[in-house]
Write a protein that binds this DNA or RNA. Structure first.
Lengths: 181, 181
DNA sequence: TGGACATACATAGTCAGACTATGTATAGTG
DNA sequence: CACTATACATAGTCTGACTATGTATGTCCA
């Protein structure tokens, strides 16, 4: 019954774009979506080099610089000097940043509740599983674009490529939904 | 403990934001996401007044004006004068617009295929259902009078057989797939 | 050891989508 | 026939995103 993967992806992005507008209205009095997205990545991946953050967030390196600067001004992230390489400026989320992220999630959820009230248990489970599937794909696919390095530094093994292929009705989805980076 | 709806919604929006970045890279040589989102709404809802389009797209009325102007310049949409009310400028998608939308979907799907290759049938089904659930909520929560879910059509019943572009529902009141309050 | 090249991040400048505030034309009403 | 409400257009601004480029540091090799 799986019609066409092409159509599925088209619908996925279309719905995604519409949801983005809804979220923009929901998180009104707070920061931008880019801020929260970046904070989420920081919380999930811990101290991370700026270039790696840019790749994971699918933004350009200058954009990542701006976002981190913004977070640092808010006290939600800090830059750490790398003792082994003075060029590197790793970024960490601060406790204040974690708190802010949690607060945003709460506010967002409250704003979206009317739209998503009355979901059946089955629907909630479906959404949880779908989120898990998408997250696995987002985390697992290493950035195709920015990786011209032929150099084999091989210091920090990237934590990606979790290779999660849990089928539906497996416990993986609910766990992924609850963990929340 | 499966359902903390608050956490689910937070995860949903976070994943959504990350997917948006992926899509931005995928549809590279073409128009913006706002263009395709608007075009999708136009195809789904047929001739539609500008204010209604803005509400459905979750953008302000001036933004809708700009988007429609852009579409009209491309020849992808046309403004229709309302014989009963000279203030009204309804908008319709043109055949050229439908073709452009289909082309975008194809290009997008091709670009995203590597990331989503190897999905199991169950995973595809889960994503299809999730898309249906979200679409129902997006379509349903618009007007003060929420359209009641009429029948319990399975989401898997999307046709997808006749044309290259399936889904995106049919015009009219087909929004209630899978709502089942 | 020192110069050439590569890498990591920062800065500058630009573009587009989104908003609020406001203007203009038409419709409805007492 | 004004008087208000409605529907859309216009003006101006903010911000996230990009490309192009600059600066500092690391690495390689003669």
């Amino acid at each position: 019954m799986s019609s066409d993967l092409s159509a599925l992806l088209g619908d996925l992005i279309t719905v995604n774009n519409r949801l983005t507008r809804v979220a923009a209205h929901a998180a009104h009095g707070t920061e931008s979506a880019a801020t929260w997205r970046t904070l989420s990545v920081l919380r999930q991946l811990g101290p991370i080099r700026l270039g790696e953050l840019a790749a994971r967030s699918r933004v350009s390196q200058p954009t990542a610089t701006k976002l981190v600067t913004h977070l640092a001004e808010r006290g939600w992230a800090e830059r750490l000097a790398d003792p082994l390489d003075a060029r590197v400026a790793s970024t960490v989320i601060t406790p204040s940043g974690v708190a802010a992220l949690d607060a945003w999630r709460s506010e967002l959820a409250e704003a979206l509740l009317p739209m998503f009230s009355g979901l059946t248990d089955a629907e909630v489970e479906t959404l949880e599983e779908a989120i898990g599937i998408l997250r696995a794909r987002l985390d697992g696919s290493e950035t195709p674009a920015v990786r011209p390095a032929v150099h084999t530094t091989s210091v920090g093994a990237l934590p990606g490529t979790s290779a999660v292929h849990s089928s539906s009705t497996s416990p993986g989805a609910s766990a992924a939904a609850g963990a929340s980076a």
